[in-house]
Design a protein around this nucleic acid. Structure first.
Length: 573
DNA sequence: GCCGTTTTCGGCCCGACTGTTTTCAGTCG
């Protein structure tokens, strides 16, 4: 992914400039450009060839030139020069919580500190105190910050953070004087991973709730405790920030605290142009303190002439412009989903029977559910050979007869072999109601081979859905090399759906890929990859990913009524 | 370095907490 490589270089440039005391607005320009490159849904190389780089927000003539230079030569001369002026170790010091550019620069220039390890040694030995406003307390914080960094400031998966956040919300809702408690931040925006959990409470008695919060049994350590704000480290390791506001400011605070930062900056800029000021306390006219809005988010957006924008879209990737034009997409909701199309049972590596799965799906109110166990090539998962599959299908049909209120589709998650053939012959696939084709082997194939392998599978008339299309595992395995645009075009051509696999480790397609699929008009399918009954609940993560990709219900096959789904699976002629 | 319904130059979001300082700079979100 070239755009990620360039984004990383721009981030490095911003760090280097900051450490050299460069123009802070120039620093910000690099960071903004980096962020927009990371969330790009189109291929940066394609944009460059078409001379459309300057259409990316935050990219002007200069940065477009630098992107071109990188794509041509593999490096950017000016950035390399600038980064060489500061030792790598000094750049790394910025990752220590509490160490910013000013401190890092002082430590480097005045004390000759050039690495995180050296910084830790000096702080632990008490050799920094009495210099540049550092005392014993700051030394302690540095040592602790370095340890925190070492333990891995790895971000937590959405699927893990969400229950932790909801548990805290429940605990705080019982505190006396609390009106409302809500999750905010990247968790409310449903990003695939979060760095911390943000909780916002409306209360006229902030002291009581701060006290209750810092005393919760979930707290491992109190990091910060003010009058309206506190921060703790959760027993599960993640940091939790609580902010308490007056109920009349709840909307403004929610907007502010939900972010993203870039989205907020855009809102505030729009406010300034209208002679208004937006803060977490409300919307104010002029420099006076006349509050004109703030109790609800709708009011805040209305103050700058916008309709309310769903949190999942608030990344400053076009949602402000869409809102201005009154063209915000109608996003899919959990209620739109009529069935789960990717479920395993104990016939392979699932932990429950067909019967239990169907009963659980029915109790969720689904109109249909697909049983899609592994095919024979996935030996580690106990994949079924042809005879076993036929027997399995027989059992599925028998269970289905006992559950007339829910349609049970007998399917398979069938391996795509390295040459693009499916793991079962066509005549066997033809006996199934639904076929998900997935790659589970030979991840390291070169890009062209992998792309051809998947496009060949999509051309098979018995295949309906491409399972977890890029194979990535969050924090564990990179996506396989793949020309996604070519796969999307193949799916479009053959009328096939790409899965948004809702399993928390996968979320594959991811949000930006889902958005690309949306833009190209490719069908999508939500599946939880359920292996235990609780996993059916992951559907909300898949829905969230689709929403972050601007996807509406009509493009997702399992929001369709059963009849429409059936006719899509068996195209006429 | 970007950007334009006041601007092609002169702006560029806003506030809390900490640790140190006696009124604020640095960091963070």
């Amino acid at each position: 992914m070239k755009s990620f490589e360039i984004a990383r270089l721009f981030e490095q440039m911003a760090d280097a400039l900051e450490l050299q005391g460069g123009n802070p607005f120039r620093v910000r320009a690099y960071r903004r450009a980096a962020q927009n490159l990371e969330t790009l849904s189109e291929d940066v190389e394609v944009l460059a060839r078409a001379g459309r780089l300057e259409e990316i927000p935050g990219i002007g003539a200069d940065l477009a030139g630098k992107i071109d230079e990188y794509l041509r030569t593999g490096h950017i001369a000016e950035i390399e020069t600038s980064c060489r002026r500061v030792p790598r170790g000094v750049m790394e010091m910025l990752a220590v919580p509490g160490i910013g550019p000013k401190t890092a620069r002082q430590l480097y220039e005045r004390e000759g500190v050039t690495s995180v390890a050296q910084l830790e040694r000096l702080a632990a030995a008490g050799k920094l105190r009495g210099r540049h406003g550092i005392q014993a307390r700051t030394e302690q914080n540095i040592v602790r910050g370095v340890q925190l960094l070492r333990r891995g400031q790895a971000r937590m998966q959405l699927g893990r953070a969400l229950p932790l956040g909801r548990d805290l919300v429940r605990a705080l809702e019982d505190v006396r004087g609390v009106k409302t408690v809500m999750l905010a931040g990247s968790l409310r925006r449903m990003k695939e991973t979060v760095g911390d959990i943000d909780v916002l409470a409306a209360s006229s008695e902030p002291a009581a709730i701060i006290k209750a919060f810092t005393g919760l049994r979930q707290v491992a350590e109190v990091l910060e405790r003010g009058t309206t704000k506190a921060a703790i480290r959760h027993r599960e390791g993640i940091q939790v920030d609580l902010r308490v506001v007056d109920p009349e400011s709840m909307g403004a605070a929610l907007a502010y605290f939900t972010g993203s930062k870039q989205h907020n900056i855009r809102l505030r800029e729009m406010a300034v142009k209208r002679g208004l000021k937006i803060s977490e306390y409300g919307v104010f006219r002029g420099r006076g303190s006349q509050r004109i809005a703030g109790a609800s988010e709708e009011e805040v957006y209305a103050a700058v002439g916008l309709p309310w924008i769903p949190p999942e879209l608030r990344e400053n990737t076009g949602e402000i412009e869409a809102a201005q034009a009154r063209r915000l997409p109608a996003l899919v909701t959990l209620d739109d989903v009529r069935g789960d199309l990717h479920c395993h049972t104990d016939a392979t590596d699932g932990h429950h029977s067909i019967e239990a799965l169907v009963a659980a799906a029915a109790s969720r109110g689904y109109a249909y559910v697909a049983v899609t166990d592994h095919s024979r090539a996935t030996r580690v998962a106990g994949g079924l050979d042809i005879d076993e599959l036929r027997a399995h299908v027989g059992r599925i049909r028998a269970v289905a007869r006992r559950h007339p209120r829910i349609a049970v589709l007998a399917g398979s998650e069938c391996d795509i072999l390295p040459d693009g053939r499916l793991d079962y012959p066509d005549e066997v696939l033809a006996e199934l109601d639904l076929v998900i084709a997935s790659v589970h082997t030979r991840f390291k194939q070169p890009k062209r081979e992998m792309t051809r392998r998947i496009c060949t599978a999509l051309a098979n008339p018995h295949v309906h859905i491409l399972g977890h299309p890029t194979g990535r595992l969050l924090g564990e395995r990179d996506p396989y090399a793949l020309d996604l645009d070519e796969v999307l075009r193949a799916a479009k051509r053959h009328g096939k759906a790409l899965e948004i696999n809702a399993y928390p480790d996968r979320l594959d397609l991811c949000d930006t890929h889902a958005r690309r699929a949306r833009d190209l008009g490719v069908l999508l399918a939500l599946g939880t990859d359920t292996h235990m009954l609780d996993h059916l609940g992951y559907m909300e993560l898949g829905v969230a990913t689709a929403r972050r990709g601007w996807v509406g219900a009509s493009q997702i096959v399992n929001t369709w009524p059963l009849e429409k789904l059936r006719s899509w699976r068996q195209p006429a002629g």
